[in-house]
Amino acid sequence: HNLTITQGKLFFHYNPKLCLSEIHKMEEVSGTKGRQERNDIALKTNGDQASCENELLKFSYIRTSFDKILLRWEPYWPPDFRDLLGFMLFYKEAPYQNVTEFDGQDACGSNSWTVVDIDPPLRSNDPKSQNHPGWLMRGLKPWTQYAIFVKTLVTFSDERRTYGAKSDIIYVQTDATNPSVPLDPISVSNSSSQIILKWKPPSDPNGNITHYLVFWERQAEDSELFELDYCLKGLKLPSRTWSPPFESEDSQKHNQSEYEDSAGECCSCPKTDSQILKELEESSFRKTFEDYLHNVVFVPRKTSSGTGAEDPRPSRKRRSLGDVGNVTVAVPTVAAFPNTSSTSVPTSPEEHRPFEKVVNKESLVISGLRHFTGYRIELQACNQDTPEERCSVAAYVSARTMPEAKADDIVGPVTHEIFENNVVHLMWQEPKEPNGLIVLYEVSYRRYGDEELHLCVSRKHFALERGCRLRGLSPGNYSVRIRATSLAGNGSWTEPTYFYVTDYLDVPSNIA
C-alpha cells in the first residue's frame, strides 16, 4: 500500500525493539523526510534493546553428524571492536523451508527459537588472519532439518551509529543413524509349514526405512522333555500350542467401542483428552525405555581390526524358502538304536541362519518350516543398504507352526516275539517326523474274553527296548493296539495285532 503524509511529521519514542533503520525507511515511504526535528525521533529510546544489523554474515563451514552440527561463519568486528559482546545463534526444527525470524513471537518477546549466546573469538592483530567464530550444536535429532541463523550482539553506541551483522536463515539436516526397533511384532501360524509375521514401523526411523531383515531359527525343545518319565503317576503330560491366527481386521481397528449394538453396526467412541494424553505418555515412556535398553543392555560386537582377528559373527547367506525346513542338525536320541526319531534339535552355532529381506511392506510369510516346531524370529529395521547396512537392534518374537495331521501315527506293522515265561516283546517304529517329539506310547492289549488293559511306555523305555515287553501273560489269544502321544496330543491307534500265548508248562520236552 502507498502511504503519503502531505502535512505533519513523524514522532517515535520509547520503541526499544524498533531499529532506527526501520524508522528511516518509514520517513522515505511516507514522504516526511526532512520535516522531523532532532528530538522527534529519539536516538536513545528507539532500538536500544534490539540488534540492528546492516551487514550480512556468511557461514564459512558446515559439518553434520547424526546428532551434531558444527558451524563456522566469517569474522565480524565493528569499528570499535570492544562493542562486540558476542553472537546469538538461533535454531529450531523446520520440516519445511518457510521459516521466518519472527515465527511464534508474542507480545512478551518470546519466540519459538532456541538461542545460544556465543563469546567472540580472540581478536588477531592481523586483519587478514582473524579467527572464524563458530559453535557445535549438540543433542539434535537424527535425520531432522533445522533452520539456523546467527547475528551479532553489540553494545549501545553513544554516537548512535547503527552497526551489526546478521546471516540469512539456512537449512541444515542432520545425518541418518540406526533406527529404533520395529514396533509390535506379531507372529502367527496359518499352516503346519508357515508363519505369518506382521509389525509396525519404528517410532524413530532416523532416516528413510529402506528394508527390513527377518531372521528365523528353529528352537530346540526343553531338555526336561527328553529326561522326564511322563508315565509316572502324578506327572502331567506336557503340551505345546501353536500360535493362533490373526483376529479379523475389524476387531483390530483402534479407537473402536468394545460393545456392539445388537441391531447392527455401531460407531466408534472418540477417545477423551485424558485417554489420548495417557497414550502419549505411555508411548514416550516406551521410547525412553527402549533407548535405555539399547544403550545399557546391548553391547556392540567388536569388529575385526587390522591384526587379522576374525569377526566372530557368522556370515549372512541367503537361502531359498524351500530350504528352511531342514535348518537344524538332527541327532538321534540314543545312538545305539537307529530307529528312534531325530527330534532332539541342538543347533550348531556355526550354522548360517536363513533370512529374508523385506522391502516396502511390514509383513512376511515364512514358508518351508517344520510342522509343530518353535521358531525364534528376529526382526531388524534398516535405513541404508549400501555401502553397508545400517540397521536397528533386533526385536524378537516366537511362534510355533501348526501340527501336521497323521504325523504322530505309527507307520509300519507292530511285530512281536514270544519268549519263555510268557513274555512277549512288542516292537514298532517311532514316527519319523512327529509333531514336536514323542513323549510316550500307549499300549492297549486284551486277552479274548477279558477286559482291555493299558500300559504306558516312556520315551526312554522305548529307546532301550525298541518297544516294550509284556510279562506274566496268561495263555490265550491276544490283540494289541499302540498309539503315540506327542507334544500336540495323541496320534491314531494302530491296526490290531494278534498273537497267541501258550502255557509254557505244557511245552513238550526233548528229553527222552
Rank of each mutant, 00 (worst) to 15 (best):
S203V: 04
D204V: 14
P205W: 03
N206L: 04
N206D: 02
N206Q: 02
G207K: 01
G207I: 02
G207S: 05
N208L: 07
T210L: 10
H211M: 02
H211D: 00
H211K: 11
V214H: 00
F215G: 14
F215K: 04
F215M: 08
F215N: 12
F215H: 06
W216R: 10
R218M: 14
R218I: 07
Q219L: 13
Q219F: 13
D222L: 09
D222T: 05
D222R: 12
D222N: 13
E224S: 08
L225A: 10
L225C: 08
E227I: 11
E227R: 08
L228F: 12
L228S: 10
D229H: 05
D229V: 05
D229M: 07
Y230F: 06
L232S: 09
L232Q: 13
K233M: 14
L235H: 11
L235S: 07
L235E: 07
K236M: 07
L237P: 08
L237E: 15
P238V: 04
T241W: 03
T241N: 10
W242T: 06
W242L: 10
S243L: 10
P244T: 08
P245R: 11
P245Q: 14
E247M: 10
E249Q: 15
E249V: 12
D250S: 11
S251P: 13
Q252Y: 12
Q252C: 13
H254P: 09
N255I: 08
S257N: 06
S257K: 06
Y259L: 04
Y259Q: 11
D261M: 13
D261K: 08
S262H: 07
A263W: 02
G264P: 04
G264Y: 06
C266R: 09
C266D: 13
C267V: 12
S268D: 08
C269R: 07
K271Y: 07
K271C: 14
T272R: 12
T272V: 10
S274C: 15
Q275T: 11
I276A: 08
L277W: 11
K278S: 15
K278E: 08
E279T: 12
E279R: 12
E281I: 15
E281A: 11
E281S: 08
E282I: 13
E282V: 11
S283R: 14
S283T: 10
S284C: 01
F285G: 05
F285V: 05
R286N: 04
R286D: 14
K287R: 06
K287Y: 09
T288F: 03
T288N: 11
F289W: 10
F289Q: 05
Y292P: 08
Y292R: 07
H294Y: 04
V297E: 09
V297Q: 14
V297S: 09
V299Q: 13
P300K: 14
P300T: 13
R301T: 14
K302Y: 11
T303M: 10
T303L: 05
S305N: 13
S305A: 11
S305I: 07
S305W: 05
G308S: 08
G308A: 13
G308D: 06
A309P: 07
A309T: 03
E310S: 13
D311T: 14
R313W: 14
P314E: 14
R316T: 12
K317E: 13
K317Q: 10
K317M: 07
R318Y: 08
R318V: 14
R318T: 09
R319M: 10
S320I: 12
L321S: 08
L321C: 15
G322F: 02
D323W: 14
V324C: 03
V324T: 04
V324L: 08
P332C: 06
P332W: 04
V334T: 11
A335V: 10
A335E: 13
A336Q: 02
A336I: 08
F337W: 11
P338Y: 12
N339E: 11
N339W: 10
N339P: 09
T340C: 04
T343L: 08
T343H: 11
T343E: 06
S344F: 04
S344L: 11
S344G: 04
V345Y: 12
V345R: 07
P346S: 11
T347Y: 12
P349M: 10
E351Q: 03
E351D: 11
E351K: 14
E351V: 08
R353V: 12
F355D: 02
F355C: 13
E356Y: 13
E356L: 08
E356F: 10
E356V: 12
K357Q: 04
K357L: 09
K357E: 14
N360K: 14
N360C: 15
K361I: 07
E362R: 11
E362F: 10
E362Q: 13
E362L: 06
E362A: 11
L364G: 03
S367E: 06
G368R: 10
R370V: 10
H371N: 03
H371D: 01
F372Y: 11
F372S: 07
T373I: 13
G374C: 15
G374R: 09
G374P: 11
R376I: 13
R376P: 01
I377Y: 09
E378W: 09
L379R: 00
L379E: 00
Q380N: 13
A381T: 12
Q384E: 15
P387Q: 10
P387S: 06
P387D: 08
E388W: 05
E388L: 09
E389L: 10
E389I: 06
R390L: 10
S392M: 02
S392N: 01
V393M: 08
A394T: 12
Y396H: 15
V397I: 01
S398D: 08
S398P: 07
A399F: 06
R400H: 13
R400K: 05
M402R: 02
M402Q: 15
P403L: 10
P403K: 11
P403T: 08
P403Y: 07
E404Q: 13
E404T: 04
A405H: 14
K406A: 15
K406Q: 12
D408F: 00
D409Q: 05
D409F: 10
I410R: 02
G412H: 04
G412V: 07
E417N: 03
I418N: 12
F419C: 13
E420D: 10
N422Y: 10
N422K: 14
V423I: 07
L426I: 00
M427E: 13
M427G: 13
W428V: 01
W428Y: 01
W428F: 03
Q429C: 15
E430S: 15
E430M: 12
P431W: 00
K432H: 12
K432T: 12
E433H: 03
P434T: 06
P434S: 10
P434K: 05
N435G: 01
N435H: 01
G436Y: 03
L437F: 04
L440P: 00
L440E: 03
L440G: 05
Y441C: 02
Y441P: 00
Y441H: 02
S444T: 11
S444R: 04
S444Q: 13
Y445C: 05
R446H: 10
R447Q: 11
Y448A: 11
G449I: 06
D450Q: 13
D450V: 06
E451L: 07
E452L: 09
E452S: 03
E452P: 15
L453D: 07
L453F: 11
H454S: 02
L455M: 11
L455R: 08
C456N: 01
C456G: 01
C456E: 04
C456V: 02
V457R: 06
V457M: 12
S458Q: 04
S458I: 10
R459C: 15
R459S: 10
K460V: 15
K460E: 08
H461I: 13
R466L: 08
R466I: 08
C468T: 01
C468Q: 06
L470T: 02
L470R: 01
R471L: 10
R471M: 07
R471A: 14
R471V: 15
R471N: 10
G472N: 09
S474C: 09
P475K: 08
P475W: 10
G476Y: 00
Y478P: 00
S479N: 02
V480Y: 15
V480K: 00
V480A: 05
I482G: 00
R483L: 03
S486G: 08
S486M: 00
S486N: 01
L487D: 09
G489S: 07
G489D: 03
S492A: 11
W493P: 01
W493S: 09
T497M: 11
T497G: 12
T497C: 15
Y498P: 06
Y498I: 13
Y500W: 13
Y500V: 10
V501G: 01
T502E: 15
D503S: 13
D503G: 07
Y504N: 05
L505F: 12
L505A: 09
D506I: 10
D506G: 11
V507I: 12
S509H: 01
S509L: 07
